[in-house]
C-alpha cells in the first residue's frame, strides 16, 4: 500500500483518530498528516509499527500508550508526548511541552529543541526494554522525577531560550533507577535531595555514543560536535529510597 496523506485541517480530533484507526485496520502502514493544529491523542494506543509524518503542531498526548509506531513531527509538539509509551520512536524537530514520556516503559523520544516541566517522570526499565529521551535544548523543573529506569540525555545546545539555565529545579527528585546524562555543568542546588553529578565511565560513553549517533542521524545533527562537550551523569543513590522510612 502506498502512503496515505490526510489533510487534518479543521478535522475534530476524534474524527481524525477514527480515520487513522480505520486505515490501520485496513492495512495502511504509512501516513502523512498535513495541517495538524492541536488535534489530541494522535497515534494513542496504536500497537502496530506504522510510520507517521506530522506537519503542524499535534495536540496533547501524542503517541500515548503507543507500541511500535515511528512518529516524526515537522514542528513543535504540545504536552504529554509519549505518555506511558511502550515501544516505537517519536522524533520532534522543534520543541515539546510538559510531561514528555511520563511513565514511559520503552521506545525513544528525540526532541531537537526545548522541553517543559516534569519530563521523563517515573520512566521505568525492565530487562531489554530501556526507554530513552534525548533533549537537544533545555528542560524545565522536575526532569526525571521518580525515575525508576531508562535514560534521559539533556544537551542544552539547540535551545530557543538563551537566558534560561540548562535545567530547572528538582532534577531527579525521588529517582530510584535509570540515569540522566547532562552535557555541561549542572549546579548541585538544582538536583533532587541526595543526588550529585558524577563522572562518566567508559560504559557511559559507549551508551552516549550509541544513542546520540541515532539521535544525530534522525535530526541531521553533528555527533562530533555534541560529543566534544563535557558530560556528567546523575544516578540514584539507592533503588530503595524509602527502605528505612518505616517503624514496624
Amino acid at each position: 500500500m502506498e502512503m496515505r496523506e490526510i489533510n487534518a485541517k479543521g478535522i475534530y480530533y476524534r474524527d481524525l483518530n477514527q480515520i487513522i484507526r480505520a486505515a490501520i485496520k485496513e492495512g495502511e502502514r504509512e501516513f502523512i498528516l498535513k495541517n495538524v493544529n492541536g488535534q489530541r491523542y494522535i497515534v494513542a494506543g496504536v500497537n502496530v509499527p506504522i510510520k507517521m509524518e506530522i506537519y503542524g503542531t499535534p495536540g496533547q498526548d501524542l503517541g500515548a500508550f503507543m507500541k511500535g509506531p515511528y512518529v516524526r513531527v515537522h514542528g513543535n509538539a504540545q504536552d504529554g508526548v509519549g505518555n506511558t509509551m511502550d515501544e516505537g520512536k517519536i522524533v520532534i524537530e522543534g520543541s515539546a511541552g510538559d510531561v514528555v514520556g511520563y511513565a514511559m516503559r520503552g521506545g525513544k523520544i528525540y526532541i531537537r529543541g526545548d522541553v517543559g516541566y516534569r519530563v521523563g517522570i517515573h520512566m521505568k526499565a525492565f530487562k531489554e526494554k530501556v526507554p530513552v529521551i534525548i533533549i537537544g535544548g533545555k528542560a524545565g523543573d522536575f526532569l526525571g522525577e521518580y525515575m525508576a529506569g531508562g535514560i534521559i540525555i539533556l544537551l542544552g545546545m539547540f535551545s530557543a531560550i538563551a537566558d534560561k539555565p540548562l535545567t530547572g529545579i528538582c532534577l531527579g527528585t525521588g529517582m530510584h533507577g535509570g540515569v540522566i546524562y547532562i552535557r555541561g555543568q549542572v549546579s548541585p542546588h538544582l538536583l533532587g535531595k541526595g543526588l550529585s553529578p558524577c563522572e562518566l565511565t567508559e560504559e557511559d560513553r559507549q551508551i552516549l555514543h550509541t544513542h546520540l549517533s541515532d539521535y544525530c542521524h534522525e535530526l541531521q545533527l553533528d555527533l562530533e560536535e555534541i560529543l566534544q562537550g563535557d558530560f556528567c551523569k546523575v544516578v540514584p543513590v539507592t533503588h530503595r529510597p524509602y527502605g528505612n522510612l518505616y517503624a514496624y
Binding site: D79, A148, H239
Partner: peptide, 26 residues
C-alpha cells in the same frame, strides 16, 4: 509490573500528568 526484582515500586502521590480537572479529562 515491569520493574527490576527487589526494587521499591513507588506510585507518586499525584499522577504527574494530572494537576487539574482538564488534565483528568485528557
Amino acid at each position: 509490573r515491569m520493574i527490576p526484582e527487589g526494587s521499591d515500586a513507588l506510585s507518586p502521590a499525584p499522577h504527574h500528568d494530572i494537576y487539574s480537572i482538564e488534565d483528568l479529562r485528557q
